[in-house]
Design a protein around this nucleic acid. Sequence first.
DNA 1: CCCTGATTCGC
DNA 2: GCGAATCAGG
Length: 193
Amino acid sequence: MSWTDDRVELLKKMWGEGQSASQIAKELGGVTRNAVIGKVHRLGLSNRAGTTSPAKPTAAKPKVAAAKPKVEPAAPKAKAKPASAPAEPSAPAPKPNLPARRAIIPAGQPLPPQPSANEIPAEALAKVSEIEKKAKKISVMELTERTCKWPIGDPATEDFWFCGLPSQQGKPYCEAHVGVAFQPMSSRRDRRR
DNA sequence: CCCTGATTCGC
DNA sequence: GCGAATCAGG
């Protein structure tokens, strides 16, 4: 694949929108994220509105000799970026339903912080109940390093499975379950208001 | 571990 | 110019 004009344009567009290199690469097809990044650099556009590391004084590369001073003539930025937020188009359809999940009386004790459906943010709860519908219902055997290990149902019965959705990096649960499992430690500070 | 972008350098 | 390999951070 070559960098045709419109491919480059799409690249620019997506990059401008804050899409990740891998996403762009996937969209374009036939290129890897490396290719995308390489192209981005060659095109001169590179740092967007402060994404990861703001300043990278990484002038010292201990591997190869940096015999290339590469003078940068202060590139003028005609593009005025109003510090736009990445704009994550999520927030699907908020389903105002969460009657399910009756207080299940677990036979086993070692259940993880099974939310007492009490002070978990309604949003997170709704998210979870919804997620659990889509759960892959995998068994213990199928748990992998990156599947949500959130148990659902009663371990004492056959009504037991694991969420199995892709887990968050690092965490043992998917995003929804991470949301209820790892509360910011301040659920209902002051409910009054 | 997964992901991100950044850089280098042989092609 | 291109992009894989590599580096570096989250």
